[in-house]
Write a protein that binds this DNA or RNA. Structure first.
Lengths: 175, 175
DNA sequence: CACCGTCAGTTCGGTCATTGAACCTACCTG
DNA sequence: CAGGTAGGTTCAATGACCGAACTGACGGTG
């Protein structure tokens, strides 16, 4: 990972995981990918990340099998980056981290996650308290919470205001 | 967090959390703290982290309320760093991250976590499959898995070979 | 008392990742 | 063919990280 040295001395799955997703911006890229962001430019405007860093992170994540690079049009050549199963498997981590951030540092919830089938809000571990099962990521519905800015500047944030499923590609109003 | 800019443009609890624990080494310090490491020197030898970075991380984590600095002897003045509830609340995140790392990048499990009361191995969300409840961190027993080096160099790693509860202070053989 | 060792840091120069801005290429539109 | 867009690469400056050396407070030993 970043800065010359890896966590070589660490015999630990956590350290191993952090070598892949522990760099600055990386987990936010994965988060956006789960939210349905796929295009270079959408990541760029939504994250406010330097272009070179984004290019580097997308490359690393693709090499690690967390994202998959997919050509969606030939001319001009355009690629999109789609989360793989390995990336989807990071959902519990991101969920736990987000919950921790919300509980300890934020006032109102920013995004709400529900089980699409029954509308129940997800529990702490991504399970549905009503159905008693772990909800697959594709069946999670995301909607804006009370703390979210209702009129953000960039089109990606605006697209994310509409309730939508996780993984489902976002629709910007450019069309 | 690191490198001049925070994730200012991000309206997101995940980004907020990463500003606290997203820097290099930080999550590993918290992991060690949950494992029962408390002393500056023990963190140092176990993590192989530069001294200055460790000092900085401990200071930040203390300021953020994740660790608490506690004087455990007056003369010479010696402080230890103990996880607070806020730090303990990071356990699900670390658990999820470790599980992801193990499943995708590691062969044999390095550490095994069990419910101390009944001996059942923990489920993916830190719950006990047998008892059907979420296990409090203090009731989690940690023991070495088959993938772990049976004869590590530093005394902290050796102390962590013995089965022990999470949060319980480690005993090095210096005494 | 002089000497040595430990613990908990701070200081310091060198290295390397990150940043923001500028540049490049390929293609499409009017 | 001027202008725009998508998807990058290159660059100098910044600043975080690294390892090693230094400090300072104390305790134990002879």
């Amino acid at each position: 990972m970043a800065l010359g040295k890896d966590y070589a001395t660490q015999e630990c799955s956590i350290a191993r995981a952090l070598e892949v997703v522990g760099e600055r911006w990386t987990l936010l890229v994965v988060r956006d990918a789960l939210y349905g962001v796929r295009r270079y430019n959408d990541f760029l405007v939504h994250l406010g990340i330097p272009r070179a860093v984004l290019a580097s992170r997308l490359q690393t994540l693709t090499a690690e099998g967390v994202l998959e690079k997919r050509r969606y049009q030939q001319s001009p050549p355009r690629d999109e980056y789609v989360v793989t199963d390995r990336g989807i498997a990071l959902w519990p981590t991101l969920r736990a981290l987000g919950l921790w951030g919300r509980e300890h540092y934020s006032a109102a919830p920013l995004r709400i996650f529900r089980h699409a089938a029954c509308g129940t809000e997800l529990g702490a571990y991504g399970e549905c308290p009503a159905c008693g099962t772990v909800v697959p990521v594709a069946d999670v519905e995301m909607l804006p919470g009370p703390g979210l800015d209702p009129d953000p500047a960039d089109p990606v944030s605006r697209a994310l205001l509409r309730p939508k499923r996780l993984l489902e590609p976002i629709e910007t109003e450019s069309a």
